[in-house]
């Protein structure tokens, strides 16, 4: 059985270096989170993982596709 790379990619990638700590703290403060809480240290790798998981979305060619915001599925 073959393994698909995208499936592997859904598991958070903890070692991405895209988001540095200072930027994270600035964003966290802007989001209203208490950056002085020890909890923030636990959040940092989770946020990096989440943002890394968006990379596959950023690589998709979505040109010409409007966001599907109507939600109600059309009848066939």
């Amino acid at each position: 059985m073959s393994s698909n790379s995208t499936y592997q990619g859904v598991s958070p990638i903890a070692n991405q270096e895209d988001l540095d700590r200072d930027t994270f703290l600035r964003l966290a403060a802007a989001a209203g989170l208490d950056v002085s809480s020890p909890h923030i240290e636990e959040l940092f790798p989770n946020v990096r993982s989440l943002l890394a998981s968006l990379e596959s979305l950023r690589q998709m060619d979505v040109s010409g596709a409007e966001p599907d915001m109507a939600f109600i599925p059309p009848r066939e």
Partner: peptide, 29 residues
């Protein structure tokens, strides 16, 4: 804690990335 972390992480998704996901949803659908 795991629920808290997932919710808090969601605060870091930009509007551009959210809408890109909705664009991808259009293609998926």
């Amino acid at each position: 804690p795991p629920v808290r972390l997932r919710l808090e992480a969601g605060l870091f998704i930009s509007a551009a990335d959210y809408l890109r996901a909705q664009q991808a949803r259009t293609l998926f659908n």
